Lab assay of single mutants.
Amino acid sequence: MGFKLLSKLLVYLTASIMAIASPLAFSVDSSGEYPTVSEIPVGEVRLYQIADGVWSHIATQSFDGAVYPSNGLIVRDGDELLLIDTAWGAKNTAALLAEIEKQIGLPVTRAVSTHFHDDRVGGVDVLRAAGVATYASPSTRRLAEVEGNEIPTHSLEGLSSSGDAVRFGPVELFYPGAAHSTDNLIVYVPSASVLYGGCAIYELSRTSAGNVADADLAEWPTSIERIQQHYPEAQFVIPGHGLPGGLDLLKHTTNVVKAHTNRSVVE
């Protein structure tokens, strides 16, 4: 069995187990497998329904001669939608809004960016022009300005110390501490036991640490421990890039980060 097929099978099995364990909360999309990078042309966006009122959005972007996937989250909030992270750029984010209108038909009224990198804030200006209120932590807003990236308009308070959590509509926002970046936030959907790890969490097929220019490698494993301790009931975990899975993604990420750190020390 090929690795790609095995990865998709694991996603399907995880979703099936969740649907059985929580039949009222989960209505997993039966329309197909989780979209992969090879299936999404740059400039297009796919939506994948995880649970009743919960979707991931998947886009792709060219970077350094390669094409990478990027995940975000959409959560229903009454007759409105909360968006977590842009679709990595203005063109993708405009396509995301169009796809949401086509498939869901509810307005996106608020959006949260989970850290300051372009795959999370690139497209904020498109959201703002569409009347979406954009939010991020003060740290993310400051770092985005320093980096020359787009800056969300509103500040999220109460997320300055490791372990801080605040309720934001249908989700809980959690600051686990520094990891992929010093400002990275985690998003949890309690009604569906869905954990969105953003770039602080890796997919299972990833074996290298990737972009760690703004990471705190020493603190990252401790931050992941905080996530595990705060959300032990999480059933569906979405990484910032690639295929979702279960809580095993947290341990896998820790292993990859520690291996990278150990290699760096040896070198």
Rank of each mutant, 00 (worst) to 15 (best):
M1S: 05
G2H: 15
L5M: 15
K8Y: 15
K8V: 15
K8D: 15
L10K: 12
V11M: 07
Y12H: 09
A15S: 14
S16T: 14
I17M: 14
M18E: 14
M18L: 14
A19M: 15
I20F: 07
S22R: 12
S22L: 11
P23Q: 13
F26L: 15
V28W: 08
V28P: 10
D29L: 09
E33K: 12
E33H: 08
E33M: 09
P41L: 09
Y48Q: 15
Y48F: 13
Y48A: 15
A51R: 08
A51V: 13
G53C: 06
V54T: 07
S56Q: 15
S56N: 15
I58E: 06
I58M: 08
A59K: 05
Q61D: 04
S62G: 13
G65V: 06
A66R: 12
A66N: 15
A66Q: 15
Y68R: 03
Y68N: 06
S70T: 05
S70C: 05
I74P: 02
I74Q: 03
R76E: 10
G78P: 05
L81E: 00
L82M: 09
L82D: 00
I84R: 00
I84D: 00
A87M: 00
W88C: 01
G89H: 00
G89C: 00
A90G: 11
K91V: 15
N92V: 00
A94F: 13
A94G: 11
A95G: 09
A95L: 14
A95C: 05
A98F: 11
I100L: 08
K102D: 13
Q103D: 14
L106S: 10
L106G: 05
L106I: 13
R110T: 10
V112G: 04
V112M: 07
S113L: 04
S113K: 01
F116V: 05
F116A: 08
H117M: 00
V121K: 01
V124S: 08
V124P: 03
V126A: 07
R128Q: 13
A129Y: 12
A130E: 11
A130F: 11
A133Q: 14
A136R: 04
P138H: 10
P138D: 09
S139N: 11
T140P: 02
R142C: 06
E147V: 14
E147A: 15
N149S: 12
I151E: 03
I151L: 08
P152H: 04
P152M: 02
H154N: 10
G158M: 07
G158K: 08
L159M: 07
S160Q: 13
S161Q: 14
A165Y: 13
A165E: 13
R167P: 12
R167V: 11
R167T: 13
R167N: 12
E172Q: 07
Y175I: 00
A178N: 09
L185G: 03
I186N: 05
Y188H: 04
V189H: 05
S191V: 10
S191C: 05
A192E: 11
A192F: 08
V194G: 01
L195V: 04
G197M: 01
G197W: 01
G198W: 04
C199Q: 01
C199E: 01
C199H: 00
Y202E: 05
Y202N: 07
L204E: 15
S205V: 08
R206C: 07
T207D: 15
S208A: 10
N211T: 07
V212A: 07
A213Q: 14
D214Q: 07
A215Q: 04
L217V: 11
A218S: 13
P221E: 10
T222C: 06
T222H: 14
T222K: 11
T222W: 12
S223I: 01
S223N: 00
E225S: 11
I227K: 02
I227R: 02
Q229Y: 11
H230E: 11
E233M: 11
E233P: 04
A234Q: 01
Q235N: 09
F236W: 12
F236G: 03
V237Q: 01
I238N: 05
G245Y: 03
G246E: 09
L247V: 14
K251R: 13
T253W: 02
T254P: 06
T254F: 14
N255V: 12
N255P: 05
V256K: 02
A259T: 10
R263L: 14
S264M: 11
V265M: 11
